[in-house]
Design a protein around this nucleic acid. Structure first.
Lengths: 338, 338
DNA sequence: CTGAAAGCGCTTACAG
DNA sequence: CTGAAAGCGCTTACAG
C-alpha cells in the first residue's frame, strides 16, 4: 500500500507538503497541490488512519456499547447513532453486550484500547469498576436509554412514566384489575423504573401490585416465557401482562400460545417498545413507543459536544402509548398513531 | 493516559522489557516480569492498540459491510460474525449500507483507511470500482449471503433453490396456480437467484411467471408495499405472494391489510428469511429459513483463514421451508420444524 | 510557501 | 535476559 513517502517522491515534494494538501492547509502553492493530487490519484493513495490517529491523538470514532443488538429497539438506536455520527464526521464501533456484564466490560475495554474519542453506553448493570473508572478518568461518555445513578455522565433517555400511566388507565377502563408486569433486571434503570411507574399508576386506581404479579426478567425472550408461565400457574392469574420490553413480550406470546390461550380473550398483553410487527401480530399489540431515532441523535450530539469541548446536555424525551387490541374487546380509543 | 514509558520508568526497566512482558515473550526474568506487572497494575496501564497496529501492521479487526442492519436476518448474521470473530481474537466493525451503494462505498473506504485485517461484505449492488479494486489489490475479503460474480473472492451463502422448490410444491398442492414474487434488486445475487429458482420451480408444474407477477423490490418494506398494491390492482391478482425477504413481506402485509383483505383467505403470503415474529403474526407466516448463525461463523472462519495464510473455502449451506398457515386453509404438511 | 526534524506509542532485530 | 535504537506513517511547530 502506497504511503505518504511514495506520494511525496512521485510529486517531487516533501511529505510535509503532501500532508498539508491532504489536510487542506491553506499555505500550499497551487502547483504543488496539483502535483500532489495527481500523485495521490496515480498511486491510489489513501492516508493511513492508524498513523494519523497515533499522531493526532484522536480517532474520529465513537464507541457504542448496547445491551442487545437482536432487540429491534437497540438496532434502531444503533442505526440512528451511526447516522448522526456520520453526519458529524465520526465513525462508530458497536459492541454488543448481550445483556452480559462481562461481555459489556470486554467491549468497553477493547474500545478504550482503541482510543475511541468517546463512549455511548446503555449499561447492562449497575456499572462495573472498569466503566466507573473510565467515567472518572474523564473519558467522554454519555449514557443512552439506561444509565448509572451517581455517575457524573449526561443521560439521554425516554421517560415512560406518563405513557405507563396512560396504559394503566386504558386497562382500568377496559375493566381489568389484576395487572402483572414482567420487569427487566433491577440493576438497570429501565428495569426498575418501569416497575415503579407501573406500581405508582396502579396505586392511582387503588390497585395493588402483589409480588406474584412481578416477573423478574432480563429483557430476553426466554425470561418473558418463564415469567408468563409462572403467572399462568397462579391460582388467580393476571388479566393482563405488561412486558417491559418487546423481546419479553415475544416470550410471553410464546407461553400463552403454548398454553392454548388466546389474546386478549383469555389474557391481555402490552409491551414497552413498539416495533413494526406489532401491527401484524395476532392480535395487534398495544405498546409504548419510544422516540428511538431522536434518542440516538441526541446522544451523539451530547457526546460530540463533550468531545469537542462544549458543555453536553442530558435529554429526556417522552414515550407514548399506542393502543391496539391486545388488551381488550372494546373498540380502542384511537390515539395519534394507529 | 499512562504509556509504556511510564510503566518502564516505574518498573525500572526499558520499554523493550515492558513490551516483552506484555506480549508474553519467553525471555524475561521472573523478577523483571513481576516488577512490570506491578507497575502496569499501579498505573492502570492499557497498551495503545493504535500504536501497536501501526507498528505490527495488523489491527486484529474485521470489517463487516451489510446491506441493512434493520433487517433481522442481517442483525443475526452480524451477531454471529462478531461472536465467532471474538472467539478467534478479532474485533469487528460493522458498516450498514442501508441498501445504498454510495453508503456501502463510504464504509468500505473508511474500513480500508483503518487498515482492518479483512473485509466481510454482503454487496448491495454489482460491485463498485472501489470494492473491485480492493479485491484485486489483495485485501483479504469474503462475500456473505450475496456475492459478486466474476470476482475471485470466497463466498459463504445459503442455497434457497431446493427450499423454493418445496415452497412451490406446497403452494401447488394447496391448489394455487397464480403465484407472484416480490424480488430484490436484480443487481444482487439473492435478488436475481430467488426469482430464477421460483420461475424454474413453477415450470416444473407447467406454470408460467408472467411479468406482471414479478414485483421489483429493493428488499425494503416500502417496496413490498408498492409491489403488493400493484398486484392487487391487476385484473387477475395472484393467489399467493412470495416476498424475497422478510421486510418486503412486512410491507406486503401492510398493503393487504390496507385493502381490507385477509391472509390466507383472500391472498396467501410466504417469505424468504424466517424470524421469530412469524410464529405470532396473523396468520403465522410460511417462510424459508436460512442457517444464519452457521453462515456468520463460516464466513469469519474463511476470512481468518485467508488472513492467516491458510486457503479459504467457499461454503454453501441449504435453506429450508417452514410451513405455517399463511398460504392456505389445509392442515399444513408438517416439516422438521414448526 | 516549503522542508527537515521531532515525536505520537509501540515492537523487534541486533548486540551484548 | 536486557537495552539502545530504528522505524511503522503520519502531523506540525520551527526555521528559512
Amino acid at each position: 500500500m502506497a504511503s505518504i513517502k511514495d506520494v511525496a517522491a512521485r510529486a517531487g515534494v516533501s511529505v510535509a507538503t503532501v500532508s498539508r494538501v491532504l489536510n487542506s492547509h491553506p499555505s500550499v502553492s497551487p502547483e504543488a497541490r496539483a502535483r500532489v493530487l495527481a500523485a495521490v490519484d496515480a498511486l491510489g493513495y489513501r492516508p493511513n488512519a492508524v498513523a494519523r490517529s497515533l499522531r493526532t491523538d484522536q480517532t474520529r470514532t465513537l464507541g457504542l456499547v448496547i445491551s442487545d443488538v437482536l432487540n429491534p429497539y437497540f438496532t434502531e438506536l444503533a442505526r440512528s447513532v451511526e447516522e448522526e455520527a456520520r453526519a458529524l464526521g465520526y465513525s462508530v464501533i458497536i459492541g454488543n453486550a448481550d445483556e452480559r456484564p462481562e461481555l459489556q466490560d470486554h467491549h468497553v475495554r477493547t474500545l478504550l484500547d482503541r482510543r475511541i474519542d468517546g463512549l455511548l453506553v446503555s449499561p447492562t448493570d449497575g456499572g462495573s469498576p472498569l466503566m466507573l473508572d473510565a467515567a472518572r478518568a474523564g473519558t467522554p461518555m454519555v449514557f443512552v436509554d439506561r444509565w448509572i445513578p451517581g455517575v457524573d455522565v449526561p443521560v439521554v433517555r425516554a421517560d415512560g412514566r406518563s405513557a405507563i400511566r396512560d396504559l394503566v388507565a386504558h386497562l382500568y377502563g377496559l375493566g381489568h384489575r389484576r395487572l402483572a408486569i414482567i420487569a427487566g433486571p433491577a440493576a438497570t434503570t429501565t428495569g426498575s423504573e418501569r416497575v415503579e411507574a407501573f406500581r405508582d399508576a396502579l396505586r392511582e386506581h387503588r390497585l395493588a401490585l402483589p409480588e406474584a404479579y412481578i416477573g423478574h426478567g432480563d429483557f430476553q425472550a426466554d425470561s418473558g416465557r418463564r415469567s408468563t408461565e409462572a403467572f399462568l400457574a397462579l391460582p388467580e392469574p393476571p388479566e393482563v401482562v405488561f412486558a417491559a420490553d418487546n423481546l419479553m413480550a415475544l416470550g410471553a406470546l410464546d407461553a400463552i400460545r403454548a398454553h392454548g390461550l388466546r389474546v386478549p380473550h383469555d389474557i391481555g398483553l402490552a409491551a414497552f417498545d413498539d416495533i413494526p410487527w406489532f401491527v401484524h401480530t395476532d392480535p395487534p399489540i398495544t405498546a409504548i413507543a419510544q422516540p428511538t431515532k431522536e434518542l440516538g441523535r441526541a446522544a451523539v450530539r451530547a457526546l460530540v459536544d463533550r468531545i469537542e469541548g462544549r458543555p453536553p446536555q442530558s435529554v429526556t424525551l417522552p414515550a407514548r402509548l399506542v393502543v391496539r387490541s391486545s388488551c381488550g374487546e372494546h373498540a380502542p380509543t384511537r390515539r395519534s398513531n394507529p
